[in-house]
Design a protein around this nucleic acid. Structure first.
Length: 397
DNA sequence: TCTGGGGTCCTAGGACCC
DNA sequence: TCTGGGGTCCTAGGACCC
């Protein structure tokens, strides 16, 4: 028999639900900052992390190190992170390295060192968890933290968390504390680097409405452009737009979401754990390859990617029922194909075979710049009876 | 001188079943 | 003979994020 709410003990009835207090913590220029810990002589200089096959800095006879410069780079790499000094020159994440070399030819170029970043990532998250354990992982350099049940004012609490992160890593971060994830995410960015921004609903018109609509997590380049065509540039202008107009232009789902976020409304809970949905590997070639002229090379790369996906699945303990491929052509257009198997697998040969079937369904006249393989519809290996997992022997295709 | 690699979520049409 | 919905799975593409 279900307990009626009005039969609950009196104390539960009178207890005020606590006001939600959500933090977003974002590490400052994370990858670049980790590099500066290792190469402190670069502090204060424009430094860019990115690219592939960049040489590690070389130690000189006099004990100093010799660093690669952005101007010496040739290839298809992009900027992963730039120091604030490099950003001041117009260099930003995801920009092509060749283009950024035009803007900052003398900037130092360092290869990415993901093992180190993952290590520092674990350290800062553990440090925060020591103070506030309700954490949503949002990738290598940012987290949401639910502070609702912690009895400490926001400002000292934010300072304490930042100090714990600094003690654990030597790195700075920026924190926003607000009633929800949407606003916390916006606020962690308002006082970067090394900032703290506290905000509640009453601050919305003064602090949030003047911002570009693009600052809202989920409004990307396309949505921003569509809004601009309606004459909507700021969050405030979005809030002032008649809901019917947004529904008309963006549909029920997106339209009502836009109305909500413009008014700072966001009830999403923190996701403190999650299962992966897909595991994939992809590779952009040094030069565009042709299916026939470069068949042998492509085939070797393709097999290598499939085997890496298989390794990843095995290491993480999953089998996959769906195997897919992604191609990007020389003109940057991309296509995907996938196939769902009768029984899940983590076997490299079978993944290669299934991916090969997908490849047959794709036009191969144009040159190709990228090839990728994805495993999805994942199941934990431990949940699947052995006889229901496909191994090398047979493949129902 | 074009634009990495790892993901998530959403939409939409068709198949298929009830 | 004609005309239904609803639900789920599969596939393809696209927007967006870090």
């Amino acid at each position: 028999m279900a307990t009626e709410p009005d039969q609950a003990p009196l104390a539960d009835n009178t207890a005020q639900p606590r006001k939600r207090r959500i933090a977003h913590l974002d590490m400052d220029a994370f990858f670049a900052s980790v590099e500066l810990l290792h190469y402190p002589e670069l502090r204060g200089q424009p430094v860019v992390v990115g690219g592939r096959g960049i040489d590690q800095p070389v130690a000189q006879a006099d004990g100093s190190r010799r660093f690669a410069r952005l101007r010496d780079y040739a290839g298809r790499g992009v900027v992963t992170t730039a120091t604030y000094e490099a950003r001041a020159l117009g260099v930003f994440s995801a920009m092509g390295l060749m283009k950024s070399a035009q803007l900052a030819p003398d900037a130092i170029l360092l290869p990415a060192n993901f093992d180190a970043y993952r290590d520092y990532s674990r350290r800062f998250k553990a440090a925060v968890a020591g103070i506030a354990p309700l954490i949503e992982d949002r990738g290598i350099d940012e987290i949401y933290i639910d502070l609702t049940d912690i009895d400490e004012d926001s400002l000292p609490l934010a300072r304490r968390i930042k100090q714990a992160v600094r003690d654990a890593t030597g790195l700075s971060c920026s924190i926003g504390i607000t009633p929800n994830k949407l606003l916390a995410k916006i606020c962690s960015d308002l006082d970067k680097p090394d900032g703290i921004t506290l905000l509640d609903m009453a601050d919305l018109p003064a602090r949030i409405w003047p911002l570009p609509a693009r600052k809202i997590n989920g409004i990307g380049p396309k949505a921003n452009e569509r809004l601009a065509q309606l004459g909507i540039k700021t969050v405030g202008e979005l809030a002032a737009t008649a809901p019917e107009r947004l529904l008309r232009h963006f549909g029920q789902s997106m339209g009502s979401w836009l109305c909500q976020v413009a008014h700072g409304i966001d009830d999403r809970p923190l996701k403190t754990s999650r299962e992966p949905k897909s595991i994939s590997r992809e590779s952009t070639f040094q030069r565009d390859l042709h299916a026939r002229a470069d068949r042998a090379e492509l085939s070797e790369i393709f097999t290598g990617i499939c085997l890496r996906v298989a390794e990843d699945l095995a290491r993480k303990g999953y089998v996959a029922r769906t195997i897919g491929i992604k191609l990007r052509y020389a003109d940057f257009a991309s296509v995907t194909r996938d196939i769902t198997l009768a029984t899940p697998t983590a076997d490299g040969q079978l993944i290669r075979k299934a991916a090969g079937e997908c490849l047959k369904r794709v036009p191969l006249t144009q040159r190709i710049r990228l090839l990728g393989v994805r495993a999805s519809t994942l199941l934990p290996f431990a949940d699947v009876p052995a006889r229901q997992i496909s191994l090398q022997a047979e493949l129902p295709l």
